[in-house]
Design a protein around this nucleic acid. Structure first.
Lengths: 210, 210
DNA sequence: ATTGTTATCACATGATAATGTTAGCTATCT
DNA sequence: AGATAGCTAACATTATCATGTGATAACAAT
């Protein structure tokens, strides 16, 4: 039996979803509140829902802040954001704060029901638009490496040493070459990357620009 | 009209999907190859498909490597990975290499069709299991900063300078303080972070550990 | 009122790093 | 065969960094 809670300040929407879900088989929706604060009170005193549908824009505490609190107190509750916001910041903040799904508000009632079932089966319900944003986030991590400034594998070894915070001497020992060779490689690396300090190489490397 | 291509080395599966998609309304599937190499030849000489379904494990070039090449030559083609692999590495590598969707091979033919339509409408088809892995990836990005090793805002200014690859002198100029003051701050930063070189501070900072 | 923290500055010294120049050896490409 | 690229190495010089020691002033907390 899926027990679902709702936090949503629009009474009309809230009641509609609650009534719909409550009449579905294998599902009940005993609680629907205006605010995170009210939901927290409910959770203190009653059996926990398995799933919460939560808006972001709420009177009082925001849905994202609220989720952080709820997830820290009741980590077993899965939370689906149900909101009009489709800007990347709100999406990623929600996901980082522990959301298990993210639906846009135009989602139909049957789709909401499916999403909850999907979630309980180990899925992660997302509106297609949201999924695309999430995917794009990864796509954009595309190493925008400068093909013509590519380092050789030996040079990469040196860079790794720098990133590990090693001195020239330590790098030389690690790679079993002379310190002068390390110097030589580093000169070449600086030239290729158009930098002139360890600091810049390390920064570039950790930003994924190498 | 959706034009779909398939790269899949299992002839049975390949033919099945091709025949199924080809008989759908508004969809045609003129090409299905064994390998990335064959698909690349096809793309040179024919009209490009809008969507490619691609396996990962293939004879010759891997699907991930293949996707990188195809995306760099034909960025307009959307690629859906269709594979048995559900390990995080393969998933994230695929997404970073430019995949627009990721389906597991047990996906039914009608679901594959829906996924293609979903994709063309701006969505990002993913099997629920995959979606969950992707979401979990964000959930895990919980900031793990060491509260007790917090830097003062002035110290953070100095760190920012280091991350930008500046020398002590340049930081002093930027903040309009003496180079000795910069030294003093850096000593304190090293003490707080238990490090003893610019390199380590930069590394920590860019890893989000400050 | 004393203690602690932060921010500021100075002087000094040995250790590292950055840069220039040169060059031998190997593998690969033309 | 000659050119090119990569890895190796040495020597030299100047610049920057890491660290020790010590000090003054503002401000907050006990």
């Amino acid at each position: 039996m899926a027990i679902v809670g709702i936090v949503e300040d629009n009474k009309k929407i809230r009641d509609l979803i609650q009534r719909y879900l409550d009449m579905q088989e294998g599902m009940q929706c005993p609680v629907a509140t205006d605010t995170v604060e009210e939901m927290l009170e409910f959770l203190e005193e009653h059996q926990h829902p398995n799933v919460l549908l939560m808006d972001i824009q709420l009177p009082g505490m925001s849905g994202i802040k609220g989720m952080e609190i709820i997830k820290s107190k009741y980590p077993d509750i899965d939370i689906i954001m149900l909101t009009v916001y489709h800007d990347s910041h709100k999406i990623f903040d929600s996901l980082k704060a522990g959301a298990s799904g993210y639906l846009l508000k135009h989602t139909s009632l049957p789709e909401i029901k499916e999403s909850i079932e999907n979630l309980l089966k180990g899925g992660a319900p997302m509106s297609p638009q949201i999924a695309r944003k999430v995917i794009t986030h990864f796509n954009d991590q595309a190493p925008k490496k400068n093909e013509d400034s590519m380092l050789t594998s030996r040079e990469q070894d040196i860079v790794n040493g720098l990133v590990d915070g090693l001195s020239y001497k330590m790098i030389a020992d690690r790679l079993d070459i002379s310190i002068d060779t390390v110097r030589a490689h580093i000169r070449n690396i600086y030239k290729k990357l158009h930098v002139n300090s360890k600091a810049e190489v390390i920064a570039k490397s950790l930003r994924g620009e190498i």
